[in-house]
Design a protein around this nucleic acid. Structure first.
Lengths: 157, 157
DNA sequence: GTCAAGCTTGACGTTAACGTAAGGGTGACC
DNA sequence: GGTCACCCTTACGTTAACGTCAAGCTTGAC
């Protein structure tokens, strides 16, 4: 029984599905869209280590909000199919575009987290006054840090 | 002509649409889904400062990949409609859930950015060997930092 | 030999988040 | 008084990313 991550290992569709908690339909769909292209054994799909790596990238891309089309573009950037220096220069531009877009997303997330944390602190302060018994254990730290009740209302910017 | 951000200001649907680069249809849709509820002047919608603030939150939520349903839940957390301490405790849990989810997303973005930057560096190194003339201006820094060509292939994890 | 498990390819259904067109009201301007 | 330029509602269309059957092949277990 080989290590689940040994490079020479191969996977059935179901094995990958279980590992990554997706459905066979999804994997076939990604294949349809050109994001995966596993080998075949007769009719059956056989995924190898590279396919598995691509899948992790696909799912990560999805989690950060990229469309399958975007993800496909990125995956194509990594495959040295090439087409000459002009193509490479174009790829480089796309890489940079994606980096800029993701950095913006990171900013948004940071803002959102800040708002949420403020709202959270407000809630904790409020609960601390009325029903401290309902507070989760680690909330005292937030209180000690000086949570202000009116933070609830500062949700805009 | 009042300051565009004075709290007492109101906005027509079109004004908000232009400012935030969305369509009237989108704003009406958000209203349909319970994320906005502007006042009316006859039939016409009249948005105030609070509505505008909610809209910024809605769009930010969208950019970080939340569904309108998620965003609505969060918005409801901020409105002190209340319902007692039990309700507040529930809200607090939801706040924390969202925070945890967003932190995970941040992690994903950081991973993705790392991969992209490696790929980018690989591309730059490659171009530097073949057609340095096609390189954008600031690329030398990356070269000096020791970009390795085979980084292109380390896209998995 | 047949039965269930797991694979395959269609092909139609579904949900979210709007787009788009149809039809109609109101006020301002020339 | 016609024609913009807005605004409204209703309703059907669209795209992405699958879900959900349906029908059929293979293969090991009993």
């Amino acid at each position: 029984m080989p290590d689940l991550r040994r490079p020479e290992r191969t996977y059935t569709i179901r094995q990958l599905c279980i590992e990554f908690k997706v459905t066979p339909r999804a994997l076939r769909f990604y294949e349809d869209k050109g994001l995966l292209s596993p080998a075949r054994e007769g009719l059956n799909r056989v995924y190898n280590y590279r396919d598995r790596a691509r899948l992790t990238l696909i799912l990560r891309g999805k989690r950060v909000g990229l469309s399958l089309a975007d993800i496909r573009e990125i995956l194509e950037l990594y495959s040295p199919d090439d087409g000459g220096a002009a193509q490479a220069a174009k790829s480089l531009r796309k890489f940079r575009d994606q980096i800029v877009a993701l950095e913006a997303k990171r900013e948004d997330i940071d803002h959102a987290l800040e708002s949420l944390r403020e709202g959270c602190a407000g809630m904790e302060a409020r609960l601390a006054k009325t029903r401290p018994d309902l507070l989760p254990a680690e909330a005292e730290a937030a209180q000690a840090a000086g949570a202000r009740l009116d933070a609830v209302h500062e949700f805009a910017k």
